[in-house]
Amino acid sequence: KNAAQIVDEALNQGITLFVADNRLQYETSRDNIPEELLNEWKYYRQDLIDFLQQLD
C-alpha cells in the first residue's frame, strides 16, 4: 500500500487525514475509527506525513 491509497481509503470512509505541527491528524464525523485503519496510519505515519505535506 502507499500513502495515496491510505488517504483515499480514509476519505471513502468519511475521514480526512492532514498534518498539523508535523503530526498526522484526522477529522471525521464518525463515532469511531476502525482499529485496522488506526494501525495502518501508525505503521505508515511518516509516509503519510510526507505525502500530505507535498500536497500543501
Rank of each mutant, 00 (worst) to 15 (best):
N12D: 10
L55D: 08
I15D: 02
P34K: 04
I15N: 01
A10C: 04
L55H: 12
V19N: 02
L11P: 01
A20Q: 14
L38N: 03
R23W: 08
A4D: 06
V19M: 05
Q13I: 10
Q13Y: 13
D8Q: 15
F51Q: 01
D47C: 07
D8C: 15
R30G: 09
L17F: 05
R45S: 14
D31P: 11
I15Y: 09
L38S: 05
L55A: 12
F18D: 03
F51N: 01
I49C: 06
D8N: 14
Q5M: 09
N32A: 11
A4L: 06
D50Q: 10
I49R: 03
L24V: 06
N22W: 05
N39E: 13
E36Y: 13
V7I: 11
L55C: 09
E35H: 07
L48N: 00
I49N: 03
L52Q: 00
N2W: 07
A10I: 02
I49G: 00
F18P: 02
G14T: 02
N12V: 13
Q53Y: 09
A20N: 09
R23K: 13
I33G: 01
E35P: 11
I15F: 09
T28G: 06
W41K: 00
D8H: 15
F18G: 05
Q5P: 01
N22E: 08
A20C: 15
T28F: 04
Q53V: 13
P34Q: 05
D56Q: 15
A10N: 02
T16P: 02
K42S: 14
D56P: 11
L37P: 01
I33M: 04
D21G: 08
N2L: 11
Q13L: 15
F18N: 04
L55M: 11
Q53A: 10
K42P: 02
E40M: 08
E40D: 12
N2C: 14
I6M: 06
L52C: 01
K42D: 15
E9H: 07
R30H: 09
L37Y: 06
K1P: 04
I15P: 00
L24Y: 01
I15A: 02
R23T: 15
D47H: 08
I33Y: 02
E9W: 06
F51S: 01
R23F: 09
V7H: 04
I49P: 00
E27F: 13
D50A: 13
E27A: 14
E36S: 12
D8P: 01
Q5Y: 05
Q13A: 13
E40G: 03
W41N: 00
D8K: 15
Q54R: 13
Y44I: 03
N12I: 12
I33A: 03
Q53M: 14
Q13T: 04
A20L: 12
N32W: 14
V7R: 04
N12L: 14
K1Q: 04
L38P: 02
Q25V: 10
W41V: 04
Q46G: 06
L38R: 06
T28C: 06
F51R: 02
Y43G: 05
